[in-house]
Simulated assay, not measured.
Amino acid sequence: MHSGFVESDTAEQLLGRTHELLSDYRGRLEKIKSPLVSNEETWHTCALQAERIIRDCADSLRSGRADVRDRLIQQVEGLGVARATQGIDAVHSIRAGMILFDIVFDALGKAMVDSPAAFDGFQAGVRTLQQGIGRRLEAGAIGHDTYLLNTVREVNAASQRQLAREIHDHLGNHVSLALRRIELHELTWESSPDEVAVRIGAVKDTLTEALGIIRDLVTQLRRADREGTLESAFTAFLESMEITPSKVRIKVNGSEEWAPQDVLDEVFLVVRECLRNSLAHAEAEHVLATVDIAPYKLQALIEDNGCGFDVSEVATAGRANGIASCTERVELLGGTILFASAPEGTRVTLTIPLMDLPGDSVERAT
């Protein structure tokens, strides 16, 4: 009872210093000329996240166990998008997170000195501080990268549509006109009919072939704008399982041209396995899968709100479960995959480096 009272008192002491800690936080950001304090609106969003982290730390001091409010963290993904639209690089959020960690850690340490009996609460508070900042940085980075990747994808799609118009309107029109003129000459030329016929026939064959190539190019360019290898494969999978979009949402960001086909194939199999596990074993009501493809790496995140499982127990239960198979597939591509599960849901993250460039012969790690 006494220990609980001390921890509660320590938590109130930390909460009572919130304004002081936020003031120190802003002062340090201003000192390094961080764009996160360039205007009141941006600072307000930054201060709100810091205040939530401090409150989570206080709650952990009271309970003696790490406790981070995950639902609030999910909102930070939208904040990452906002940072990207403002032109604020993710490195500024990382610097801010390091500064906030130092400030709150010192505050927790002072509270520990004032109340040595609250050591369990201090440990829980530090864990909450680390997890609260880390998860927010991760969520913000996902939102930031998603925005940039989608922007690149939109630019690529616009370029493809423009190229398709240019080919059709200009090159196609000129070739068609030349073909028509030759057809007219066939009707009027009377000298050397045999020679003219041979020459015109060859030109017509060439131009006809060129028109066929142009039509194929235009068709491929327009198809590339509306279809993706992964997206179409996932769509077919969901349709075959009669899974509604309200239950499972899948999003592919970036250009699939940046990843080799074998990587895309393996990622599809891994994500599909995770989706099946979420629906069949976790009894999840909602599943979200996001695949982000950049020129240098591919990342995927699969989250559900199912019943969760004991990762360590399942991982050692034999190779019949999907974890071993997924892990092997990702590691053979030189990547990493992490499983995190709790009664509130499961989270799978995988990262695969895309280091192969045209002309390279570097083999992936095996």
Rank of each mutant, 00 (worst) to 15 (best):
M1K: 11
S3V: 14
S8E: 13
A11G: 01
G16I: 00
R28W: 09
W43S: 03
L48A: 12
Q49T: 12
R52N: 15
I54A: 04
I54G: 05
A58K: 03
A58Q: 06
L61P: 03
A66V: 01
D70G: 00
L72M: 10
I73R: 07
I73P: 01
G80C: 06
G80F: 09
R83I: 07
A90Q: 07
S93A: 13
V104A: 03
V104G: 04
G109I: 02
D120P: 04
V126I: 13
Q131V: 00
I133R: 02
A141S: 13
I142Y: 11
D145E: 15
T146N: 11
T146V: 12
T146S: 15
A158C: 05
Q160W: 09
L171N: 01
S176R: 11
A178Y: 04
A178R: 03
I182H: 02
S192P: 03
A202L: 07
T208V: 05
E209A: 12
L211S: 08
G212T: 05
R215K: 13
L221Y: 08
L221M: 14
R222W: 01
D225I: 15
R226E: 13
E227M: 03
G228A: 04
S240L: 07
K247W: 00
K247T: 14
I250S: 01
V252F: 08
S255K: 03
W258V: 03
Q261L: 14
V270R: 03
C274L: 10
H281C: 02
A282C: 13
V291W: 06
T316I: 12
T316Y: 11
R329Y: 02
T336Q: 14
A340G: 08
T349N: 07
T349C: 08
T351N: 13
L357T: 11
T366D: 10
